[in-house]
Amino acid sequence: MFLKSLKIILFFLLAAVIYGAFLYAPLAKGLGEYTRVLYFHVPTAWITVTAFAVGALFSGIYLKNKELKYDLWAEAANQLGLLFGVLATVTGSIWAKMSWGSFWNWDPRETSIFILLLIYAAYFALRSAVEQADRRAALSAVYDLLAFVTVPFFVFVVPRIYSSLHPDPIVNTQGKIHMNGKMLLVFLSSLSAYTAVFFWMLKQRIDLIGIQLKIKQLEN
């Protein structure tokens, strides 16, 4: 009952975020109408980092416990991370077309997310290349931990070292969020709603993995 109410709240929260992004929040100076993508693009990027962090955590637990389910949980989290990463890239690219005149400009921010997506695509390539379950789990857990080390570097460091056209200086000067109260309300609501959707999706994948493992157990 509690979870059901949470889901209903989530539905209305994200619907309110959509309404707020288009009709309630004012536009940022210098960004104009393109401000609206902020409420969808930043949360998808945030979820990408969160999902990869959760994936790395499960990989670490696998390496400690050697229980296969944690490796499968890590795979599920990384799948969602890659999905949200692609969404962040697409929404960013649409914004770039409107603002910079081209879908892809090899801006440091675009280049770093592209490399990050390639690193995680290689994780899945590695998984599909190894047939033996234990060996695959161990190799991909180690790779996942190494891959996650690069996440803060590519997401937070690289775009700040090189001069970028990414509009951080407008909404995020000195690493602090300088937003109008209405914008901040919609932005934080969007972050919370996206995070809830991510954990809901992850829970479904984890449940399905549990079912899959139980079927295997019943077959033996």
């Binding site: 889901k7 989530l10 539905f11 994200l14 619907a15 959509i18 309404y19 288009f22 009709l23 959707v197 809901w200 999706m201 479904q204």
Partner: peptide, 19 residues
Amino acid sequence: IYVVLIINIIIWTGIFSYL
């Protein structure tokens, strides 16, 4: 802007129903 808003709401309703 209302068209975009409605399309977004429809997409979210679809994803929510699917979940």
